[in-house]
Amino acid sequence: MSPGTLSAASGSTIASFTLWAVTVAALLLLLVVDIVLTRRPHEVRMREAVGWSVFYLVLPVLFGFYLWAAFDGGVAVEFFTGWVVEKSLSVDNLFVFMLLLAAFAVPTELAQRVLLYGIIGALVLRAVFIALGAAALKSGTWAFLLFGAVLIVTAVKVLREARKGEAHAVDIDSMRSVRLLRRLVPVSPRYHGFRLLVRENGRTAITPLALATVAVFATDIVFAVDSVPAVYGVTEDPFLVFATNAFALLGLRALYFVLRGALARLRHLNYGLAVILAFIGVKLVLHWAHGIWAWVPEIPTAASLGVIVTVLFTVTITSLRAERVPPPPQADEA
């Protein structure tokens, strides 16, 4: 039995009720800590952001070693592979958050609260999609084919946008959620700290912070549609799917302030994400086909981890090299 088929063969999750309870309780505790840290509007310094980013990078590593000791290496490899996939997708999510914050002109001292709302919304949406995905997988192997098709179509879309230079484009005026809110309720022209609702001119209005939060939630839905099928291509265990998503999303608030200057330099990131999504999509289709025709090969999870890490390393190097290339000289105007 290969590591990549461990969960499929067992047909159940590795986690007991106790492990589920402890994991969820730890997640809630970390979210409470984040809420406490953002209770006072302030600009996040690099030292603070780096410290918390390192903390949230060490956590999944320790958790992976725990899985290795408590279960086996196959489970740990599934977790680490899924976490790398989800972390790479969450960085893309972070880039969109950055553009949304700029589009809404969110003050720097309020940005971390919008990010926290976005992370909480993403966790809730991922939990819903994970449950739906688990139910779909139990209903039949057709779900693997569906998930694979979704990822391949998404990969083609991401690649087209990257080639056109449209990746990470954000137009808040075209977002249906934003337009709907503006029609239904009045919007205050200025920010009021962390307040989402204010009383102005005898009527209740939402603040720009509330509008930005709704826009972030709307993008969370789009990313959940892509990320959950992607991690189900690595493991079929709902607990591992949830854990990889949770660990990938935790710490994004701090990571934003570390990477906000570097994110714009990763100009080839979407090319890499397109390759990763297409690769996992093909992996799911092969897994579906293997269930019907035994001679169809499957891609081991360890090999998937190697491919994903290689792709991310490659696009990072090519992006940094592209930054060093000077722009072509412009012809003098007549």
Rank of each mutant, 00 (worst) to 15 (best):
K164I: 10
S7F: 04
H42S: 13
S174D: 13
R45C: 11
W83M: 03
A49N: 11
K164C: 14
Y256P: 04
G140K: 11
L99A: 04
G11R: 02
R176A: 09
T108K: 15
L62N: 05
H268D: 08
S12L: 03
T108Y: 12
P189K: 08
L269D: 00
S177R: 03
L62A: 14
L159Q: 14
A25I: 05
D237T: 03
L30T: 07
R267Y: 06
L132M: 12
V156D: 12
I120Y: 10
P3T: 01
V32M: 01
A122L: 13
V158P: 06
P300S: 02
T154P: 13
A69G: 08
V315N: 08
P208L: 07
V178W: 07
E109C: 07
L116D: 09
I292F: 02
D34I: 00
T18G: 00
P328W: 11
A135F: 12
A122W: 12
T5G: 00
D171E: 15
L132A: 14
L284Q: 08
F65G: 02
F242L: 07
L286A: 07
S53E: 02
A224T: 01
S88N: 08
A21M: 06
V158M: 13
L30I: 00
R47V: 14
S304L: 07
L312F: 05
V222F: 09
P186G: 09
L101M: 13
L249S: 05
V124G: 10
A246D: 02
L181C: 03
V311H: 06
L59V: 12
R176M: 01
A230E: 01
N270P: 01
A102K: 09
R160V: 13
A169F: 14
P186W: 04
V231C: 10
Y117L: 12
W83H: 15
L209H: 09
R190I: 10
R160W: 13
A278H: 04
V128C: 12
A162K: 12
F80I: 15
G82F: 06
G121F: 07
A274F: 00
F239K: 02
A303L: 11
L27Q: 02
M175Y: 06
